[in-house]
Nucleic acid binder design. Structure first.
Ligand SMILES: [Mn+2]
Ligand SMILES: [Mn+2]
Ligand SMILES: [Zn+2]
Ligand SMILES: [Zn+2]
Lengths: 142, 142
DNA sequence: TCAGCGAATAAGAATCATTCCAATCAGCAA
DNA sequence: TTGCTGATTGGAATGATTCTTATTCGCTGA
């Protein structure tokens, strides 16, 4: 697998250990599913993708693993519309582009200065830990 | 009531007519609930607020009315986390600040040039109809 | 004014994503 | 080995929303 994303090599086992959590085959297989196909799948889609490799895993466990990965800051939970949560393993600062025709979601890299400009709209006293930016519209046909 | 928001006077009856929809007491009372208290209530909260004035309205109708108002572009449906949708009658360009401690959501005005800067991150071919920006963190105590 | 018609509402059932629960299970330590 | 604790399972429960169906309403044309 060639990583087209330039990211720090976030090691699952390490991050789990740091959080005082155990590494398990289920957590590995769920995390890997998010790494190999970065199309922001739902929990149920992850479940479907992971079952061929681990047929005994339960949907509840997929939910548990995803929650754990989010807690460890290895995965972002994405909610920009009604409907199931989606999960994203891209740790670089990025916005989401939601294609209203196809339903697909794309990552749009966010330069630091844009992020800074956005944060500058906050009045004094507002302390933002995170900023989420989502576009809705039509993505290129290609 | 003094409108602290400087907005075009979006007339409900007019907008409904424009969309070929009928004005009804239910739609008026639901829309009014969003105008008088702009704290991004859920459908259920709107239901609770509206019942004293119209005890026979049903929750299903509240959902229907909210959907209609969203369709008419009089109301924004806001989803930035799991959980019930919230509704916002502020038509001016603004971001949302979600206070993680209190759960409250505040409107943050968005200057056009910031919006333009954000849109500039889109690669060629991406046509964004709307941009949503949400901050998560801690709002001032006051 | 009134009948007819489609739109809108009301009440409750159904759906769907998620969470909860209770019973195993697994890895490590005594 | 045995215990302990965290993790996994399968199924039940929950909560928000949507759907269905009957009823009511509002407008238009006679
Ligand atoms: Mn969409
Ligand atoms: Mn929150
Ligand atoms: Zn992403
Ligand atoms: Zn708002």
């Amino acid at each position: 697998m060639r990583l087209s994303h330039q990211e720090p090599p976030a090691n699952l086992a390490q991050r789990l250990a740091d959080s005082g959590l155990r590494n398990t085959p289920q957590r590995e297989v769920v995390y890997n599913a998010l790494l190999v196909r970065r199309d922001h799948p739902t929990a149920d889609e992850v479940y479907t993708r992971v079952r061929p490799e681990m047929p005994t895993i339960s949907l509840a466990t997929v939910y548990n693993c995803l929650e754990t990965l989010v807690q460890c800051d290895l995965v972002r939970q994405v909610n920009f519309e009604r409907g199931p949560s989606r999960y994203c393993a891209n740790l670089l600062p990025h916005a989401h582009f939601h294609d209203e025709k196809t339903g697909a979601t794309y990552d749009i890299p966010l330069p630091p200065e844009v992020l800074a400009h956005v944060r500058s709209v906050l009045p004094a006293g507002y302390e933002a830990k995170t900023v989420e930016i989502t576009f809705h519209g039509q993505a290129p046909i290609a």
